Simulated scan of single mutants.
Amino acid sequence: MKKLLFTCMLLSFSIISACSDKEETVPNKSQEEQQQPKMTNKPQEERQSHANQQEPPKTNKGNTVASNTQAGALKNIKDQLKTNLPIILPTELPITKGTFLTATTKAEANQVEVLFFESKEYLPINDRKLKNSQTATIIARLVVKQYPNAKEANEQISFENFSQNGGQKVDLGYNIKGYQDAGAGSLWTGWNEGRWALATHTRTDNSEAGVKLAKQAVQFLETHMLPIPKQNGFAHVDVYKSGNLIVWQDEKLVYTLDSIKEPLKALEIATGFYH
């Protein structure tokens, strides 16, 4: 009987020891499982941090990215103006081969101004480098101003009917007659094409240059169209590259092109506004 009791007590002690060992090993397994997610989260956090470092820098709100195409640059210019005026921009501008089109812009309630540049490198619209003449070259300046009504806008146009003004006639080719008028050392050769009044300027001691430029302009406009003005437009081109000016009306808007050195290039830029 004592032997049986001792055997039972020994068996009970073994069972209790086994249960105690099992209870001690379970927490270790649970703790190991709890640590497992922490080990997997760390690489994810490192990957996320690395991904954030790879994000491209944001562009400045003050300008737009440069474009290697004229269409892209002109779209950026239009977007940058942020104006409610119903203006149009040229479809393209004559720029030197290997350069890129860019600009600076200003916008007010009733007026916008665009200074077009050609640059040897990609430059965003309104980039600070454009203030440095060594970085980019001015192509032209465009100013578009809105007047209270079409009548006031039309008063800004120096339209002339040269055939009625008189003057010495000169044949400019393509059945177009020019009329010369001299005064104060200057010689003007003027003619009309549709709603446009055009004139070349030279000095009286270099009269043939004025006629030559007028003939070149007439020939150029045989294959290129100026924008259709509503109501009129005028173009003054200068032999000495100092007073090229093109202005036309579009209802209440008046477009002005200046700061263009080459007279024929001034006409070419204006034809880019034809739609």
Rank of each mutant, 00 (worst) to 15 (best):
M1I: 12
F6S: 11
F6C: 05
I16Y: 07
E23G: 08
T25G: 03
V26R: 00
Q34V: 00
Q36N: 12
P37S: 06
T40E: 12
K42R: 13
P43D: 09
E45C: 09
E45N: 02
Q48P: 02
S49L: 10
H50N: 14
H50C: 14
A51G: 06
N52R: 09
Q54G: 10
K61P: 01
V65D: 02
V65A: 15
A66C: 14
S67H: 05
N68M: 10
A71P: 07
G72T: 05
K75S: 08
N84C: 08
L85K: 05
L85A: 10
E92A: 13
T102E: 13
A103L: 00
A109M: 04
A109H: 10
E113R: 15
E121P: 06
R128D: 09
T135K: 11
A136G: 03
T137Q: 15
I139A: 02
L142A: 00
V143G: 01
V143P: 00
Q146K: 01
Q146S: 13
Y147N: 02
P148M: 15
N149K: 03
N149G: 04
E152N: 06
A153S: 07
N154I: 10
F159L: 07
N165V: 06
N165H: 01
V170R: 05
G173L: 02
I176H: 06
I176C: 09
G178W: 02
Q180N: 12
L187I: 04
W191E: 02
E193G: 08
W196K: 08
A199T: 03
S207G: 01
E208F: 09
L213C: 08
L213P: 05
A214R: 00
V218M: 05
H224M: 10
L226H: 04
Q231S: 13
V237K: 07
V239G: 06
V239R: 13
S242F: 11
V254R: 01
V254N: 01
Y255S: 03
S259R: 05
K265G: 02
F273C: 01
Y274Q: 10
